[in-house]
Design a protein around this nucleic acid. Structure first.
Lengths: 334, 334
DNA sequence: ATGAAAGCGCTAACAA
DNA sequence: TTGTTAGCGCTTTCAT
């Protein structure tokens, strides 16, 4: 950002007839500067439009007051919430946040390395980088893994496995479904993998077989729509569709009715995350609530130097609404 | 990022028995370094795990290879797409992107100033910062305004006014609606303001009055749900609801049916942006398609130094689907 | 082909 | 209270 040759601290010093140290002190409200001098310097600053270079400062201080966040992409409310959570603690500490999305960058690793150079700490979402890269990053600086795991890197997660299992058990035990299928790509991210594991564990516990392979798709609404069409094209639907996240489920909710299926009468659908739409979709979506902002906040604190356990697990909550087949509740208050 | 004392260029020089200049050359593949030397240096680099400091480099080079993007928040697909667009051109040029959201930062202006210090250029979304701040930022560096306007700052926009007007005219002329109401806060962002203007202009052109004040709400799905309830609580609905964006419209689509209204039979609903859900919602949403990624790409190019006009206007396209009352089309191919 | 040294903008220890 | 100065890590002439 240097088009119109920005004044440096030396320009101000000269202009105000003081030393650079004094200018530096003024920009930091150092009380040792006497009022008249301060005034003079401030005027010079205003006159020349001086603003200290963050880079010069960072180099000298050996810290940047910046927190980096590495996400797969910026789409989706999950990550927006994560960032919000991180932001609350960043603001408290006068730290700014820099986000990079890796999904559409062929040079993701490079981009992240660059980011790491310019930040005091890094939050890395699971599944965005190769494990060894995360480890190597962690070796060189403070990094916290969110919804992921890597050797020796402090991580903060929710127990998606347990949550998915509880959800699936609800479907089996409460509703009596026997034919259930998972929607999502287990290899896509650790989060999804855990959810799939929980799903399978629940089936195994009840001695039930999966009604088909997981439908390996993305995690967005459109993929949900695609999945619905695919299911429809291949004939009979299972009794319950356990989606890896809410967006997938919402895509189904939006598509299945048009294909002639009633939800949950013909097929139950569940999500994961408790998206803002989950509550107002129709039918209202049964899902798992996660403290995503809290995840972000804790990760930020850790990345900024607060002591943190090797593994922090935050609680989730099963949110039973209508799409699983549970009775419709009273309308929410207006 | 400096916990485990990172090696500097000097450490490598010493280790390899060469000068720092040579190390610098090696890290840049300078062909002047003879192979054996190069080898020796590379080994030292690998052995010590050296990686050049981006900050040191930035200070020396007076550029950061970083592009900053200032958005209200990271929520919503609109901004995700904008970033994607910018990312494509950033990747081409070996530039990394840093995003900051201003909405939940009380210290937004500071955060952005900080960001500006560390970037070679800035993309600022309209409505994120006070005009005078944008102008002052632009004075000190390259900034491109997206979906906004400010004195002397190159901007890139779509003609939301014209698009909203065309959309409204479709509602009036094609469907014969006379009672139309705008949903959204015109003062929230320039974009919304332009859309509202277009809406009013269309009504004025046909000599029709607004069926009530704009419903001043946010731009998210939840606000759409709230708006629906509010409308319902206050009695009769207008014939058509023109929403400031798709998310608002989707919130209505998800809520109105539960309140007993059929769309579009009882009330037509339109959106803006052509969200991924617009096409799969039911009924499918009539909206305005915008080249958002293109907006981002152009802005990035401009912010990175490519010559750009003072005002670039990108075309929009009216996408007529079902929610306005137009006949249902054939099902899209599976 | 390689090295010495100045300098990028700032901070902070030390002097005065 | 203010100034001098030595870095922070890197790049880049200019010598050699």
């Amino acid at each position: 950002m240097t088009p119109s040759a920005r004044p440096t601290i030396r320009d101000i010093a000269r202009e105000a007839g003081v030393s650079v140290a004094t200018v530096s002190r003024v920009t930091h409200d150092d009380p040792r500067v006497v009022e008249p001098t301060k005034q003079r310097v401030q005027e010079a600053i205003d006159r020349l439009g001086y603003r200290p270079s963050a880079i010069g400062r960072a180099l000298s201080l050996q810290r940047t007051s910046t927190l980096g966040i590495v996400l797969p992409g910026l789409g989706g409310p999950y990550f927006a919430q994560l960032i919000e959570g991180a932001e609350t603690v960043a603001v408290e500490r006068g730290v700014v946040i820099n986000v990079v999305g890796t999904h559409l960058r062929p040079d993701a690793v490079d981009a992240v390395r660059q980011l790491a150079e310019r930040t005091d700490g890094l939050i890395v979402a699971g599944g965005t980088l190769p494990d060894e890269e995360v480890v190597s990053l962690a070796k060189a600086g403070r990094v916290i893994l969110v919804a992921g795991e890597a050797e020796g890197v402090p991580a903060i997660v929710t127990d998606g496995r347990a949550a998915a299992s509880a959800l699936t058990l609800h479907l089996i035990d409460h509703h009596g479904y026997r034919r259930l299928r998972f929607i999502g790509e287990p290899h896509g991210s650790p989060d999804t993998a855990w959810r799939y594991e929980g799903f399978r564990a629940a089936l195994a516990e009840r001695g039930i077989e999966e009604a088909g392979e997981p439908l390996r798709l993305g995690l967005d609404v459109r993929s949900g729509a695609v999945a619905a069409r695919e299911l429809h094209a291949h004939g009979e639907l299972p009794e319950a569709l356990v989606c890896a996240n809410d967006e997938l489920a919402i895509g189904m909710l939006a598509t299945l009715p048009g294909l002639g299926y009633r939800i949950p009468a013909d097929v139950a659908v569940t999500g994961f995350d408790d998206h803002a739409l989950a509550e107002i979709a129709s039918p209202r979506l049964t899902t798992v609530h996660q403290p995503i902002a809290e995840l972000g906040a804790r990760a930020a604190a850790g990345a900024l130097g607060e002591p943190i356990d090797d593994l922090t697990t935050l609680p989730t909550e099963l949110v039973v609404r209508e799409s699983c087949g549970c009775a419709e509740e009273a309308d929410p208050p207006t």
